[in-house]
Amino acid sequence: MNGKVIAIVLILSGAIAGGALYYLQVYGYYTEVQAVPGQDVTLVSLATQEPEPILYDNFRAIDADSSPIRYRACFTTTMTQALLSETYVAATKPQPRTGPGWFDCFDAEKIAAELEAGTAIAFLGHKNIHYGVDQIVAITQDGRGYVWNDLNDCGSKAYDGTVVGEECPARPEDQPKDAPDARPAD
C-alpha cells in the first residue's frame, strides 16, 4: 500500500511540475509590449549608422525579462522594399526565432520561407540593443513587417564560451566599477 501512495505522489508531483514548467515557458514570462508611436520600429541608416524610426501601423509585440532574445513584434508599413533597401542596412544571415504559438501574427517558419524566397528582406533594426544582441526587422513585399532580437557575432561568442576578442565591446559586467557610466544623462 505504501508503494502505491508514493508512486501516486511522485506521478502527481511530476505532472504538476511539468504543467507549471510548460505554462511558464509558453505563457508566464511573456508580456504584451505597450506601443510607443514613432519608436517601436527602427532601421539602421546607411548614412548615419544609427537607428531611425520608419512609418508603421498595426503594431503588436511581446517581450520577456528572462532573455534578451524573446522579443517578437508584427506591424504593417507603406514603405516599399526598394526605398528601404536604398536607405537602410541589410541584415546578414537573418534567422527568425520561433515564438510562442499564441502570438499568432509571428510565424518564424513562414518568415524564413519568405526571406529565402526573396519576398521579404531583412534589415538591421538596432545594433547591440542588449549586449551581443541585434534587433532584426523583416519586411515583405506586401508591407507586413516582423521584428525579433538575435545574437550577433559577439553575443554568439560570449554565450558559447569562445574567446570574445578585441573586436567586441566589453560586457557591461566586465567594466570596472569606477568606470564612467556609458548611459546618457536624463
Rank of each mutant, 00 (worst) to 15 (best):
D150S: 12
N152C: 09
V137N: 07
I121T: 15
A120P: 09
P176C: 09
A61T: 03
F59V: 03
N58H: 11
P96R: 00
K157C: 10
I121N: 11
E167I: 15
V164L: 13
T77G: 03
P53F: 07
K177S: 14
S67P: 03
Q135T: 10
D160P: 05
A90K: 08
T92N: 12
A158W: 12
R97E: 04
P68E: 02
S156C: 10
L151M: 11
R144P: 06
A108C: 01
E109N: 14
P100H: 02
V133I: 14
A73D: 06
F123W: 12
A82K: 10
Y146Q: 06
A82S: 10
A64W: 06
L84F: 00
A108L: 00
I121K: 15
A120T: 06
E114S: 09
V89P: 01
I129W: 05
N58I: 01
T162I: 05
E167M: 15
D134I: 04
G99M: 02
A117I: 01
Q175M: 15
D65A: 13
Y146W: 07
A64L: 01
T78K: 11
R171G: 10
D150C: 01
S156A: 14
G118A: 07
L55W: 10
K93D: 14
L115Y: 03
P176A: 10
Q135V: 05
W102L: 04
C154Q: 10
I69S: 05
Q135P: 07
D65F: 09
L84M: 06
L83P: 02
G161L: 00
T140V: 10
T87N: 13
E167C: 12
E109A: 15
Y131H: 08
V133L: 00
P68F: 06
C168K: 13
A122C: 04
D104E: 13
D153Q: 14
E109M: 11
E166C: 11
W148N: 00
S66M: 08
G125C: 04
E86S: 13
G155E: 09
G99E: 03
K157N: 14
Y88M: 02
D160Y: 03
Q141L: 15
G161S: 02
M79L: 14
D107E: 08
V147E: 13
E52R: 09
I62Q: 02
C154L: 13
G145K: 05
T92D: 12
V137C: 07
I121D: 11
C74M: 05
S156D: 09
Y88T: 05
Q81P: 04
I54T: 01
R60H: 12
Y56R: 01
L115H: 01
F75H: 08
R144S: 14
A90T: 08
I54R: 05
D104I: 10
G125E: 07
Q95C: 00
Y159F: 14
T140R: 09
Y88G: 03
A61H: 03
S66E: 15
P53H: 07
I136G: 01
I129M: 08
Y71T: 07
I111L: 06
E114R: 13
V147H: 10
D160G: 04
G161F: 00
